[in-house]
Structure formats: structure tokens, C-alpha cells
């Protein structure tokens, strides 16, 4: 079991999202940074879709009542166990009675904490993701609070193997980290003003040529009116060629829509299912994790890719993650001998 002693800024249970119910107006929810979430799960022998804790800027404090295999991926929120820093992007075995804390946010904005076996929580509409506004899913439909106690499910056989490898290295310490980590293509530290690739949106042609260009020549800042639902950006104003009525239709994770005042909004994990603002750009799925790790005040630069290239990048990324999964499995097999 894990006992939350301090909740952090916004800590919620999320998996890869609640799909199949958007037609009923039920938002997809799910993690903001899917890559970090999936890798965190792989490092503790879970299915990629198993729910993790999404931590935001200021992470929570928690206690482990049993020896627990965990991994923390994504933004660096300065995790430490009993005062000693813990590395990101690794399998980590934490001893019973240890306290995991998070300090300041060093890089990124969100970290994902996966535990072997996953959290023992019911699925609502096929997902464990917390839908805060409707009060469903996750842990009682809410972000975690102090004194919440999270039960864990039985770890997989693979998790047990990883635990054995790490247990041999504990040597009286409170925790043991795996010696190896994963390839830097997944873990590279975010740069300031990162480049995010976008493709043309459905109403791209409605915008003035000047607006179409501005997105690439100038950078945008993430404002404080930004959350899991969407980021409001500040930068040059984007204008329509002429006022046009737009009928509500489906939107996507990473859709960049522009309300009439001209400041773009990037729709993210907790976006509404449909929207009525013109969509100028759409972020390529592979670059959504970059966006998800930006925090208010950070700047971003957009660059264009074609829809074809974006889809090819998607397929390549999936191949890489598949290879990573096999790589982890192989490594554990070797070390278990």
C-alpha cells in the first residue's frame, strides 16, 4: 500500500485515456505525456496502459508500507527517498517504511510514478483515468489528498524478476536503482523554447496568410491560464480572413484552435469532446509529450510537417517503443541469470 502524506499541487491517477465514450460527451482524460507514462510502466513490468500517478510541478509525499518496485519518468520534480535523490527513468526498488518526497521542479512539468502491479482501483467506462470535473474514475474521482491510501495489485512475473535483481543490490539501503537506464531519445532533457511539429488544421485556410506564417516565425508563451484541459498561448494574434460560422465538431489531443480574440489554445488531455473554434494547426502525436512538459512561462516554437510525415513519425515512434520493451525484457533476462 502507498499512503499519501502530502498531496502535491495536482496528483491524479491516469492511464492512456477513456476511449469509446467521447460520442456521449465523456472526455478522453488520460496522461498528458503518454511516452513517459508508458516507459514508467514498462520499467516496473506493467502493461503500458496501467494507471500511473501524474504529478504536477510540486510532487506529493508518500510512504510505502511494503517493499515496492517503482519507476519515475517524465519531468524532473526532484524525487528522493529518505533524503537521498532517486534517478528518473529507472526501475527502483523501495523498502517498506521508506518515504518518497519530491522537491522543486528542475525540468519539465509532469512526472509519472508507476508501481509494479498497478493501483487496485475500479475502471469506470473502461478506464482508471480521473475525470475531475465529473468526479469519476481514478481514486474517488478526485486528485489525491493527504491520508489517501492506495492499494496495489499483484506485480507481474516480470516485475518479480526485476525486483529480484534489485533486491540483490539493496545492501541495507532504503532503495536500490537499476544500473542501466533507457536510450536518451526518450529521456532527453527538454530544451528551452523547444520545437514542436504541427500539421495544417481543418480550418487552416480560414486564416490570413500573415497569421499562417506567424506561427512559424515567432514563438509563443504558455500562459498561466493553462491546465490539463488546454494551454492558452500568448504571442502574435492570429486572425481569420473573414468571420465564418463554425459548427461544433470533434477535436483532437494537440488541436490548436483560435477563438475570435486571436490567441491560440492548445487542446490537451482533458479537452472537451467537441469544439466550435477554427483549428489552425494540429500537433503531431510524437511531439505531444514536449507540449505536456511545458509549464506556464515556457516558450515554444512551431515548425510544419506534412500529415504524411507526422503519421510516419507516429509509426516510427511506436516501433521504437516496441523495441524498447523487448530491450528491457532482454536485459532483465540476462541479469536474472
Amino acid at each position: 500500500m502507498i499512503k499519501i502524506t502530502k498531496p502535491g499541487l495536482l496528483t491524479s491517477v491516469q492511464d492512456l485515456g477513456r476511449y469509446g465514450y467521447q460520442k456521449y460527451g465523456v472526455i478522453a482524460s488520460g496522461v498528458m505525456d503518454a511516452t513517459a507514462h508508458r516507459i514508467a510502466n514498462l520499467l516496473v513490468g506493467n502493461d503500458e496502459n496501467e494507471a500511473t500517478l501524474e504529478l504536477t510541478l510540486l510532487g506529493p509525499d508518500m510512504e510505502f508500507t511494503k517493499d515496492t518496485l517503482i519507476s519515475i519518468c517524465g519531468g524532473n520534480l526532484s524525487p528522493s527517498v529518505d533524503g537521498k535523490p532517486v534517478k528518473l527513468w529507472r526501475s527502483v526498488l523501495v523498502k517498506a517504511g521508506s518515504k518518497l518526497k519530491f522537491g522543486g521542479c528542475k525540468t519539465g512539468c509532469r512526472a509519472y510514478l508507476a508501481v509494479a502491479g498497478g493501483f487496485d482501483l475500479p475502471e469506470v467506462m473502461d478506464s482508471k483515468s480521473t475525470y475531475i470535473r465529473a468526479g469519476i474514475g481514478g481514486f474517488n474521482g478526485k486528485p489525491l489528498q493527504a491520508d489517501d491510501e492506495l492499494s496495489l495489485k499483484e506485480p507481474s512475473d516480470f516485475a518479480t524478476q526485476i525486483t529480484k535483481v534489485l533486491a540483490a543490490e539493496l545492501d541495507g539501503q532504503k532503495f536500490a536503482e537499476m544500473q542501466w537506464t533507457i536510450a536518451s531519445e526518450f529521456t532527453s532533457t527538454p530544451v528551452s523554447k523547444p520545437k514542436v511539429r504541427v500539421m495544417k488544421g481543418r480550418q487552416y485556410d480560414w486564416f490570413t496568410q500573415e497569421s499562417q506564417m506567424k506561427l512559424f516565425t515567432e514563438s509563443f508563451e504558455v500562459t498561466s491560464q493553462s491546465d490539463r484541459m488546454g494551454y492558452r498561448l500568448k504571442g502574435p494574434e492570429l486572425q481569420l480572413e473573414k468571420e465564418q460560422e463554425m459548427l461544433s465538431e470533434a477535436v483532437n489531443f494537440g488541436t490548436i484552435q483560435v477563438p475570435s480574440e486571436g490567441n491560440p489554445i492548445v487542446l490537451l488531455a482533458d479537452r472537451q469532446t467537441t469544439g466550435g473554434y477554427p483549428k489552425i494547426w494540429q500537433i503531431a502525436t510524437v511531439d505531444l509529450p514536449i507540449m505536456a512538459q511545458l509549464k506556464p512561462g515556457d516558450k515554444v516554437q512551431f515548425t510544419e510537417v506534412s500529415h504524411e510525415v507526422a503519421q510516419q513519425l507516429y509509426l516510427d515512434r511506436e516501433k521504437q517503443i516496441h523495441q524498447l520493451k523487448q530491450g528491457i525484457s532482454l536485459k532483465i533476462k540476462q541479469e536474472s541469470k
Binding site: Y19, L247, E249, A250, T274, Q311
Partner: peptide, 15 residues
């Protein structure tokens, strides 16, 4: 999944 709009239907798929 699919999501109907006023004059559209969006289909989300796994590439």
C-alpha cells in the same frame, strides 16, 4: 471510436 458533430463524424484510429 467515432465522434459525431453537427455535419461531421470523426473517426479515431490506431495507425
Amino acid at each position: 471510436e467515432y465522434v459525431p458533430g453537427f455535419t461531421t463524424v470523426a473517426v479515431f484510429y490506431d495507425p
